[in-house]
């Protein structure tokens, strides 16, 4: 088992007490800075969405409207963009998100049995969240770790060479 941990960027836990006004202000400032990276203001949309996602944990309709206001991109277009990409969270997900690759290289190495394992152990299917909110499962296309297949991301950590033997152990680290 190999793991590559990546510290930052973990979203704030859901439901934590938040001060709405100061968050909005933070987002506004962040987007203002990000806008400088592009020659046209609307191009900030993807980074702005990431910033909102990091702040709020997921992209609710309210968050999308806020991003729309701050970027000048119309709400409908923001929605069109968000739903095009598969890694924006348009629903609240569990505390830990398992991104399991099941593409060909991982499939050959048994990713489908891992999928079954998650289903049997946690009643998790693609896109679902466990009742206790601990895990969500997102089935992925290739995550570029085919030499260490099967592979998955949990939140921002990469896990390689997963097998029936070690998957439980890996997941036990995520509460």
């Amino acid at each position: 088992m190999d793991t590559m941990r990546c510290a930052a960027d973990t979203p704030a836990p859901l439901g934590a007490a938040k001060d709405g006004a100061s968050e909005s202000a933070m987002l506004k400032d962040k987007i203002k800075v990000l806008k400088k990276l592009y020659p046209h203001a609307r191009s900030v949309l993807l980074p702005a969405l990431y910033a909102a996602q990091q702040l709020y944990g997921w992209l609710s309709e309210d968050a999308l409207e806020e991003v729309s206001r701050l970027t000048g991109v119309s709400p409908a277009e923001v929605k069109g963009v968000v739903t095009f990409y598969s890694l924006f969270k348009t629903r609240p997900l569990g505390r830990n998100v398992i991104y399991l690759c099941t593409n060909v290289a991982c499939l050959i190495m048994g990713a489908d049995t891992l999928e079954d394992f998650l289903h049997n152990t946690y009643s998790l299917s693609n896109g679902e969240t466990t009742a206790d909110g601990r895990f969500s499962l997102v089935i992925m296309e290739c995550i570029g770790a085919c030499d260490k297949a099967p592979a998955m991301l949990v939140n921002d950590d990469c896990h390689f060479n997963i097998s029936m033997d070690n998957i439980r152990e890996i997941l036990d680290n995520y509460k």
């Binding site: 309709e61 999308l64 409207e65 991109v73 119309s74 709400p75 409908a76 277009e77 923001v78 929605k79 069109g80 963009v81 739903t83 095009f84 990409y85 598969s86």
Partner: peptide, 19 residues
């Protein structure tokens, strides 16, 4: 210039929607 509707979703799952 209203940008009130957009194709949402991707591939065969896409459809046209207002916000």
């Amino acid at each position: 210039g209203a940008y009130a509707i957009s194709v949402t979703g991707r591939g065969a799952h896409s459809f046209v929607e207002p916000f």
